[in-house]
Design a protein around this nucleic acid. Structure first.
Lengths: 147, 147
DNA sequence: ATGACTGCAAAAGTTTTGCAACGGT
DNA sequence: ACCGTTGCAAAACTTTTGCAGTCAT
């Protein structure tokens, strides 16, 4: 997809969610689309600076919170390092292999949850809202660098 | 299990890991065993204060980090609220249903991972270290309170 | 007695908030 | 023109660190 097409797609997504289409929001969505990796607010901020886009880190935080509240991005903190990470919500039901070292995410097709969802609903009285399934380890590159 | 038995068990666990057996460590493990819920450092701290145990919050943090490094507790930050939570490592391979509201954890026997582990190893060159599988929603009590 | 652990204070790091100015619809 | 968004500064909050004294082995 071209950058222009992408920009247009983001613009439409913002409209659909009823929030304003600003250059910062488009830029942040662009960064997340480009890196295809969950980024901390600071990483997003630095990426923007690299592109000579002037923005304040509080705006990055506010934007990422807003986008996550609207479902355009997903906030998670799976790394347990005290930093929240944000990624584009690709709106596909996907899970990932996550490299502990470089944070690369490798999407996988498997979703084990659906198989046991029914089973669970009957066994325990629990209203399921969502689930998280992530596998941690070293990707092929980091694996070879590591030893 | 009686409190005394528990204390003895914790003491042995600390010895086994080669770290000192102090009243604070025993107390913190006790809180985690008692609540059976992932707690933030502050929650652990407040629980201790309730029991008139004098401790500094930095000690709570240091202790929880140490216990997690030794595998006696597990650190996670699945709630995406910027706070790390710690729970007892019961040393069983378990996953949980986690109530979004009260943070209650309901253990489940299912682990979908093992079924697809082999499959993945072949498909992608990825060295698996661990995985996280959690299901979020409302437990039966919070469910009825909610609507 | 030695080294690990803790009390305490202070700093570091991340995230949030307030307010005025700015920008999109 | 209106109201959501952003720049900027400052505060709030979570977590870490340093050092001296204490405690477990």
């Amino acid at each position: 997809m071209s950058l222009l097409q992408e920009k247009e797609r983001f613009k439409e997504a913002l409209e659909e969610k009823g929030i304003k289409n600003t250059k910062h929001r488009i830029a942040i969505l662009g960064i997340l689309a480009e890196t295809q990796m969950p980024l901390t607010a600071e990483e997003v901020f630095l990426n923007l600076k690299d592109k000579d886009i002037s923005i304040w880190i509080s705006t990055v935080y506010r934007t990422l919170e807003t986008l996550s509240a609207k479902g355009l991005t997903i906030k998670s903190s799976f790394m347990d390092d005290g930093k929240a990470r944000y990624q584009l919500n690709q709106n596909e039901h996907k899970h990932h292999l996550i490299c502990i070292k470089c944070h690369k995410m490798i999407p996988i097709d498997e979703c084990p949850f659906h198989d046991i969802e029914e089973e669970l609903k009957d066994k325990v009285n629990f209203q399921v809202i969502g689930h998280k399934f992530e596998i941690y380890g070293y990707c092929s590159e980091c694996k070879s660098l590591n030893r």
